[in-house]
């Protein structure tokens, strides 16, 4: 394959990663933005989403489409409910103290991981995608007869990968509308800006926190469900995802949804492209270097606002 088609292929792979990453990182960013909690267990909610997708699929045993739709609805709900429980039993008792909650969520990470190992086992298990048509992609050629389209061998993607990208775009747009237009979004933003004043105007801040923590986990779980037909569910899959989410959220600016999405595209695309042309390790090295540069020259992130 020539360079051009190869690049297109890399971009598509990158876009799938960017889509999943944007969903997951916006959950992390939402939780930090509103609650000032750095949720180290966020990757485990992603893993739980993938594992739950497998569980729902094997319990239901219906057709691939029905199984997948059920997983897409049930897994985020179950994981979100677990997160609400963790919030009420652990984080609330720590008064949402920024430092102690970091330690607590590290503990939560290991608890969830070991429970998954005990309950689900060490195997990686696949979930069948609801649809998986191979779509050959055209490429242009400048020949003697002018521009012509042709289908290079090996340049293809699947309908499911395109669906993941489209689903992430729709979900993120919905999230943005929810935050800027709905009454619940207004309450979350008021709580984020000044929790004490939110309380003084009748907002039950602790209930908002519990729901935000649940919603953040549900977003990670959603990302997990979307990725599992491509990647398989494994009890250790949360680690890399967490690292990439942190990278995205730091580059984009903690608490900024727009920044998170832009950074996810940046990291996802460059990861895809560099992995295809060089090695995945180089992609991680460059991403981490980028974080270091952002931290040195623009600590609030590309889109973040300086703390007032």
């Amino acid at each position: 394959m020539e360079f051009g088609p190869y690049l297109l292929l890399a971009c598509l792979e990158g876009a799938v990663l960017a889509a999943v990453l944007a969903l997951m990182a916006s959950g992390l960013s939402l939780v930090f933005g509103v609650m000032r909690v750095v949720n180290v267990a966020h990757g485990e909610f992603y893993m739980l989403g993938a594992v739950m997708a497998w569980v729902v699929t094997s319990v239901l045993g219906g057709g691939a489409v029905i199984n997948f739709v059920a997983a897409l609805i049930l897994a985020p709900l179950i994981v979100g409910a677990l997160a609400v429980l963790a919030d009420v039993t652990i984080l609330k008792r720590l008064n949402y103290d920024p430092e102690r909650t970091i330690v607590a969520t590290i503990g939560l990470l290991y608890i969830i991981q070991q429970l998954a190992l005990m309950g689900y086992g060490p195997e990686a298990r696949p979930v069948e995608p609801p649809f998986n048509t191979r779509i050959a992609l055209p490429w242009v050629e400048w020949g003697e007869g002018g521009i012509s389209l042709y289908f290079p061998w090996g340049l293809s993607t699947t309908s499911y990968k395109l669906f993941v990208i489209a689903a992430a775009v729709v979900l993120l747009a919905a999230l943005r509308l929810f935050m800027t237009r709905s009454r619940a979004g207004l309450i979350m933003r008021a709580t984020q800006l000044d929790g004490e004043m939110a309380t003084a105007f009748g907002i039950p801040v602790e209930r908002v926190y519990a729901l935000v923590f649940g919603a953040g986990a549900a977003l990670a779980a959603l990302a997990g469900v979307l990725i599992v037909p491509i990647q398989q569910a494994h009890y250790l899959m949360g680690g890399d995802a967490l690292l990439l989410s942190f990278i995205v959220v730091i580059i984009g600016g903690l608490g900024s949804l727009a920044g998170t999405v832009v950074a996810a595209v940046l990291i996802g695309m460059s990861d895809g492209i560099i992995s295809v042309f060089f090695t995945p390790t180089l992609a991680k090295i460059i991403a981490t270097l980028l974080v270091a540069l952002v931290l040195v020259f623009r600590p609030q992130g590309l889109f973040g606002v300086r703390e007032r």
Binding site: R183, L186, I187, R189, A190, L193, E196, F201
Partner: peptide
């Protein structure tokens, strides 16, 4: 102690809540 990033209308909305 206004909600500085919210608009005037949204600050009023929070109060009405």
């Amino acid at each position: 102690r206004l909600f500085a990033d919210l608009s005037v209308a949204q600050n009023i909305e929070v109060g009405l809540g």
